[in-house]
Each structure stands twice: as C-alpha cells, then as structure tokens.
Computed example of a mutant assay.
Amino acid sequence: MTDFEPDWAGADDTRTTLISGLRSAGTVDDDIVAALSLPGVPDWLLSHPFQVIGDLDELKQGGTSVEVPEKWRAGLPYRIEVDAHQQLLLFYERVLTFGTRDEQRALINRGYLVEHWPDLAREVHPVVVSVWERRFPGLRR
C-alpha cells in the first residue's frame, strides 16, 4: 500500500494560475472573475467560467414554450411548455450556468426568469446566483 499525500500547495498554485489567466485574458467579466476567486468555488466552475448578460431587457419576451437545443436536451424533451415548471427550471439552470450570453438571450424568457428567480436561485450554483443578483438587484427577494 502506498501513502498518498495530496499536494495542496500545488493545487492552490494551479487555482491561482487559472484565476490570473482569466484576469489577464480579459475574456471573462471582472465581476465573474472576482466571484470565481472566492474560496470554495468548485474546480468544474472555475475551469468553465460562466457568462451573464448585461441587461435583462436583452432576454426574449413572451412565448408559451421553448425549443431545447440538442446540447441542452439530456433528460429533457425537444420542446418545453412554460407550465412545465420543473423541466424549465432544469433547462434554465443549465443555460445560466453553462450558456453563452447569446444562448441566454435566445433561450431565456425574461418574465419567467424574474417570476421564478427564487426557485432558480435554489437550483443554480450560488456563485452564479451571486453575480446575477449583483448585476440585477431586482431579482433578489
């Protein structure tokens, strides 16, 4: 049997390097980099930085359903009706966490997001929620 000693200093250096790279590349918004720099942010989130739109008015309005693109479809139907609350929450969780700004604009309904934010905020990672709520204080309740 081999004793295993984790290299915590090395892991911390890697994390610091990733965050520095995000800052210097300028491809991730400063508030998102700051949120990803907080202690306890999981590696999977740090290694795949999320995006957030700049204004809630960028989101689509109205509609009774959303067509789910293939990349988001795992466990979801081709089309989700707005009254299919649990399916829509799962879909929005994915788009808020992994979607680009363009995908968020095309797929997220502003009215639904605002109305159901408390439910979404319980499903989405807290770091993602914190950035959305800082940018759009009206989401907080």
Rank of each mutant, 00 (worst) to 15 (best):
M1G: 15
D3G: 08
E5S: 07
P6N: 02
D7L: 03
A11H: 13
D13H: 05
R15Y: 10
I19H: 05
I19D: 09
S20N: 12
G21E: 12
V28L: 13
D30K: 12
D30W: 06
D30P: 11
D31E: 08
D31Q: 05
V33S: 00
A35F: 01
A35N: 01
L36K: 10
S37K: 02
G40L: 05
D43A: 15
D43R: 04
W44C: 06
S47Q: 08
S47E: 11
S47K: 06
F50P: 07
F50L: 06
F50K: 06
V52R: 04
D55Q: 09
D55G: 10
L56Q: 09
D57C: 08
D57P: 06
L59Q: 07
L59S: 04
K60N: 12
Q61I: 15
Q61R: 15
G62Q: 06
V66A: 01
V68R: 07
P69L: 07
P69E: 01
E70R: 07
K71E: 14
W72K: 05
R73A: 03
G75W: 01
G75V: 02
L76T: 00
L76N: 02
P77Y: 02
Y78C: 10
Y78S: 14
R79N: 05
I80H: 07
E81N: 13
E81A: 15
V82T: 12
A84P: 00
H85T: 14
L89D: 14
L90C: 03
F91S: 06
Y92L: 13
E93A: 15
R94T: 11
R94N: 04
L96W: 07
F98G: 13
G99V: 04
R101Y: 02
E103A: 00
E103H: 01
Q104K: 01
A106P: 03
A106Y: 00
I108V: 05
R110Y: 03
G111A: 14
L113G: 10
V114S: 14
E115C: 10
E115W: 07
H116F: 12
H116I: 03
P118N: 12
P118Q: 11
L120E: 10
E123N: 03
E123F: 01
H125E: 15
P126D: 14
V127G: 09
V128W: 00
V128A: 13
S130G: 04
S130N: 08
V131I: 04
W132Q: 05
E133Y: 01
E133G: 02
G138E: 15
R141M: 13
